[in-house]
Design a protein around this nucleic acid. Sequence first.
RNA 1: GCUCCGGUGGUGUAGUCCGGUUAAGCAUUUCGCCCUCUCAAGGCGGAGAUCCCGGGUUCAAAUCCCGGCCGGAGCACCA
Length: 516
Amino acid sequence: MSAADQKKTLEEIAPGELVAKKQVEQKSPLPPLEGAEHGKVVTRFPPEPNGYPHIGHAKAAIIDEEYARMYGGKLILRFDDTNPLKEKLEYYEAIAEGLEWLGVKPDIVKNTSDDIAILHDYGKRLVNSGGAYVCTCSQDRVRDLRAKGLACECRADGVDVAGRLEKMFAGSYEQNEAIIRFKGDMADPNTAMRDPALFRIIEGDHPKVGKKVRVWPTYDFAAPLEDSLDGVTHAMRTKEYELRNALYFAILDRLGLRKPAMIEFSRLEFEGMPVSKRKIRPLIDSGTIKSWDDPRLPTLSAFKRRGFVPEAIRKFVLSLGLTLAETKPPFEALEAFNRKIIDPRCMRLYFVRDPVEVRVEGAKEMQVTLKNHPTDPSLGSRKVRVADRLFMAGDDAQNLKEGDELRLIELYNIKVAGLERQDGRVRAVRAVMGGDEIRQSMPKVQWIAKNDIVEFQVMIPKALYAGEEYNPDSLEVAKGGVESFAAALAPGAQVQFVRFGFCRIDRSNTAILTHR
RNA sequence: GCUCCGGUGGUGUAGUCCGGUUAAGCAUUUCGCCCUCUCAAGGCGGAGAUCCCGGGUUCAAAUCCCGGCCGGAGCACCA
């Protein structure tokens, strides 16, 4: 019996007994938070200031903020700076700037290193209460025994733990000589629980606290403590940390501290656009890529430079949801969001790639007014003087045949009278006036008056990586010309070059293609 | 190797916890039409998924159970 038949029969036998499945409506693109109370939600975005912010940071920060706002709560930006060897002052700033550009406004900004004394205190407390111990084994031995699931002597009773702890903080141990380890379970199938390091000694110059501190907590210790102490109610992190959840909660349990809820989501990365410094740094060091805002990179500064707007990134990120599936979302979707947002505010200007000269016989010099936007008059117009010589795009010219008619957009029609070729390529076009009637079927092309053209180039970013290899064709350069009006635009201006694509002016005579 | 997490149209997701209302919603992509002095945006419409595979439970399974297969992650004194 089909579902419909069953339903019908049921209605006959027991009218009114059929209950409609409850409708779960939800406004926000994100699912509701478990146990969230309005006004009491605290989330946190905890980047390590060890590099420039990228699209992966954006995802986490946006989700964190979105939830804080959704529930009228607070967002904490916490620089997770517990490794002086990796962190630099410029990265704190870069991250803060990146978030500001994104429109993510934290309610509180702090550093994990601000709380180093508190963290030390809890660490000592944990050791003194038997929840952790000082291990003086070599790194190799620790790794080896963890793999085998065996404990070392340092964990046994009878070791002078108090003395070792004292030595650790007093500076008697050298770097790598001693660590504080959580007393977990060396036989736990979850290897994260096999007595992980909680503190280690690092001789370094910390960007915020200098050389004063040498005993630094690891992420595994700092994260749960900070979250709990800061009042975070919902902590979110990417799913590669999933196995550490047990440790996170075990630490808080042993210290008797409040436990936040933990939510995971997958990392965000685009195909051919790696986020990892391991893949980008060599290209920078070798000069293949000049800077961290190169338009092929997934850094926020690159997205900005390329012409993506924060609203588009936010919409895109939220459209991905909180899935755990590891996929590479379509870059085209980001482009589509961005296009819809910038379309109404981009002036339509002419860029001709590989210009080919057109001579229109009998054309008199005249002045035309061109609309800067097809539907929005507030974007204004511009005046251009045209005589009998102008340029059209090389690709458009190549397909011409004698007798073809085409429309020079917002100017007039022309009829091809002759083509001048060189090596089989059309080098110049001779044309005659073809009237002014606009016909839908007629091809329409953009043009630039000969006396108005300015040399110009557009950089076209492509996939940086093809599989595991650097893509040597990742940056295409389209050379050509623009109207003098476009050449005069200030860097940062976003325009649409008609029939070419949306671009952001990067510097004088150069733009970057945002997307088609 | 051990442990954990994923697997829904070309792509990304919603739905899966609490099985049934439309055998699957949205976005992107693509195609067609309308609009249009752009191959943009906007409007309308179409195409595209045996919901990884195989069993089982059930009147009924994308949803529950078992077993596979495939993909990813963790096993740092990095975060």
